[in-house]
Amino acid sequence: MRKVIVEAYSADWKKKFEDEAILLQKSFGSEIQMIYHIGSTSVNGLSAKPIIDIMPVVRDITIMDEYNDQMAAIGYEPKGENGLPGRRYFQKGGNNRTHHVHIYEVGNPGIERHLAFRDYLSTHANAKKDYGDLKEELAKQFPYDIESYINGKEQLASEIERDALRWYKKVYKER
Rank of each mutant, 00 (worst) to 15 (best):
V4A: 07
V4C: 06
V6T: 03
V6G: 01
S10N: 12
K14S: 11
D19W: 07
D19R: 14
Q25T: 08
K26H: 01
F28Q: 03
G29D: 02
S30E: 12
Q33R: 12
I35L: 03
I35V: 06
H37L: 09
I38D: 01
S42C: 04
G45S: 12
I52D: 01
D53H: 07
V57S: 03
D60W: 09
D60R: 06
I61W: 05
I61Y: 00
T62I: 14
T62K: 14
I63A: 06
D65L: 15
D65C: 08
Y67A: 01
G75A: 08
L84P: 04
P85W: 15
R87L: 07
F90M: 03
F90T: 06
Q91Y: 14
K92D: 13
G93Y: 08
G94Y: 09
N95Q: 09
N96C: 13
T98I: 11
I103G: 03
V106W: 07
N108K: 12
E112D: 10
R113V: 01
L115I: 08
L115V: 05
A116C: 08
L134Q: 03
E137R: 15
L138K: 00
A139P: 02
Y144S: 12
D145Y: 00
Y149K: 03
Y149C: 01
G152K: 04
L156S: 03
L156I: 02
A164Q: 05
L165I: 09
Y168V: 00
